[in-house]
C-alpha cells in the first residue's frame, strides 16, 4: 500500500499559486519561496533535495503526464540535455529576470506601472482587473514581472511534458541547472576524489550523508 505523505501533495501548492495569481497578482510574491528554497538547500546543504523530493511543479507535471496520460512519453531531443543548451537557457532566463528587476526599478523611480503579464517573453496579456492600489507601484510591477516568469516556465513545462516525457522540464529548468551547478562547485572535488560523479556504487556518498 502506498503511504500518503504531505510531500506528495506539493503539486497543490503549485496549482494554488497559479490560481491565486489570477485572483490577485500580488500573490506572485509567494513565488520567491520556489526560487529561494532550492538555492538555499543547494548552497547550505549541497544537495538537490528540493528537486528530488519537494518540487511542486515536478509533481504537477508527473501528475499530468503519468496519471492523466497527457504525455507522449518519448525521449526528448539530445540537445535539450546538452550543457550549452541548459546553461544557455539559464543565462537567457536570468537575463530576462534581470530585465524584469530593471523595469521594477524604473517604476520605483517614477516610471508608469505596466499592468500586463508577459507570456513567453513576447505575448502581453492584459491584466487590468488586478487591484494593486493599496501597495507601492514597484511592488505591483515586480508581481507582474514575477508572475510572468512563473507562468512562462509553467507553460514551457506543460508543453515539453506533452511532447516528451512528463518531467522533461526538469532537464532544462533554470533552477535545476543552477542548483546542480552550485552542487558541482560545492561537492565536485569530493565527487571526483571518490570517483562518484556519474557511476559506480553509492555507498560512500551514502555514508557521508548524501
Amino acid at each position: 500500500m502506498k503511504t500518503r505523505k504531505w510531500v506528495n501533495y506539493l503539486w497543490i501548492a503549485e496549482l494554488s499559486y497559479l490560481f491565486l495569481g489570477l485572483f490577485n497578482i500580488l500573490f506572485a510574491w509567494l513565488g520567491m519561496v520556489f526560487f529561494s528554497i532550492p538555492l538555499l538547500v543547494a548552497i547550505f546543504g549541497g544537495s538537490k533535495a528540493y528537486c528530488n523530493r519537494y518540487c511542486g511543479r515536478g509533481q504537477l507535471l508527473r501528475l499530468l503526464g503519468e496519471k492523466l496520460k497527457l504525455s507522449r512519453n518519448v525521449p526528448p531531443p539530445k540537445f535539450l540535455r546538452s550543457t550549452w543548451f541548459r546553461y544557455g537557457f539559464l543565462t537567457f532566463f536570468m537575463a530576462m529576470f534581470g530585465l524584469m528587476l530593471f523595469s521594477t526599478y524604473q517604476v520605483f523611480t517614477g516610471a508608469p506601472l505596466s499592468q500586463t503579464v508577459t507570456l513567453l517573453w513576447v505575448f502581453k496579456l492584459p491584466w487590468q482587473w488586478a487591484d494593486i492600489s493599496f501597495v507601492a507601484p514597484w511592488v505591483g510591477q515586480f508581481a507582474f514581472g514575477f508572475f510572468s516568469v512563473m507562468l512562462t516556465s509553467t507553460v514551457l513545462g506543460i508543453v515539453t511534458m506533452g511532447l516528451f516525457r512528463p518531467q522533461s522540464w526538469c532537464v532544462y529548468c533554470p533552477m535545476g541547472t543552477m542548483t546542480q551547478g552550485v552542487c558541482k562547485l560545492k561537492n565536485g572535488k569530493k565527487a571526483r576524489i571518490h570517483g562518484r560523479e556519474s557511476q559506480a556504487d553509492c555507498k560512500l556518498a551514502e555514508d557521508t550523508g548524501q
Binding site: 544537495s47 533535495a49 528537486c51 546538452s82 561537492n187 556504487d201
Partner: peptide, 29 residues
Amino acid sequence: ECVACGCCARVCPRAAIQIAWGISACVDP
C-alpha cells in the same frame, strides 16, 4: 549528462539509485 532530477531514484523498486552530491544519479550495482 545526468541532470540529477531524481526521477530514477523515485521509481527504483530496489532503492538502488540515489542522487550523489546533488550532481548525478549513481547506481548501486
